[in-house]
Deep mutational scan, measured.
Amino acid sequence: MKATFQVPSITCNHCVDKIEKFVGEIEGVSFIDVSVEKKSVVVEFDAPATQDLIKEALLDAGQEVV
């Protein structure tokens, strides 16, 4: 499964690193693409990962998800 999250609070590479760390810890996540320019995060994943778990990880990383 693939999901795109709009994350307007992404401003720098530190944000990218933190997002990759938090989302990458979720079992089932196979790909993460964070774009500072587009302020988006694209995640490819399989169970047990879910969109809700990914959104929670983004929030835990200090990001706003819309």
Rank of each mutant, 00 (worst) to 15 (best):
66 V>G: 07
36 V>Y: 06
47 A>Y: 13
32 I>K: 02
43 V>F: 03
1 M>N: 11
22 F>D: 01
13 N>S: 13
50 T>G: 02
65 V>W: 09
11 T>P: 10
38 K>A: 10
10 I>C: 13
48 P>V: 02
33 D>A: 12
52 D>R: 12
41 V>A: 02
20 E>P: 00
43 V>S: 00
52 D>A: 13
2 K>V: 11
55 K>D: 01
11 T>E: 08
59 L>A: 08
51 Q>V: 15
47 A>R: 09
66 V>M: 08
28 G>C: 04
53 L>R: 13
40 S>Q: 14
41 V>I: 08
53 L>Y: 05
63 Q>H: 15
46 D>L: 09
3 A>I: 14
24 G>Q: 07
11 T>K: 12
59 L>H: 08
38 K>Y: 12
58 L>V: 03
18 K>R: 10
11 T>N: 08
23 V>D: 01
65 V>K: 05
8 P>F: 09
60 D>C: 12
33 D>F: 15
11 T>A: 08
41 V>L: 05
15 C>K: 06
20 E>C: 10
59 L>I: 13
6 Q>V: 12
44 E>G: 12
31 F>V: 07
14 H>M: 15
33 D>M: 13
45 F>M: 00
30 S>E: 06
34 V>H: 02
31 F>G: 07
51 Q>W: 15
31 F>E: 05
27 E>D: 10
57 A>Y: 04
54 I>Y: 03
36 V>G: 03
27 E>R: 10
29 V>M: 02
16 V>H: 04
61 A>G: 03
30 S>T: 13
13 N>A: 13
61 A>M: 07
15 C>V: 11
23 V>P: 01
57 A>R: 06
28 G>K: 02
4 T>D: 04
14 H>E: 15
31 F>L: 08
40 S>W: 12
44 E>I: 14
2 K>R: 13
39 K>C: 13
65 V>G: 05
6 Q>T: 10
54 I>M: 02
58 L>Q: 01
45 F>G: 00
61 A>Y: 05
1 M>A: 07
12 C>S: 13
16 V>G: 04
64 E>Y: 12
13 N>E: 13
17 D>Y: 13
66 V>Q: 09
44 E>M: 14
50 T>V: 03
30 S>C: 08
35 S>V: 06
43 V>T: 00
62 G>R: 05
40 S>E: 13
33 D>T: 12
16 V>W: 08
64 E>C: 15
25 E>V: 11
26 I>H: 00
41 V>Y: 04
66 V>N: 07
65 V>L: 07
41 V>N: 00
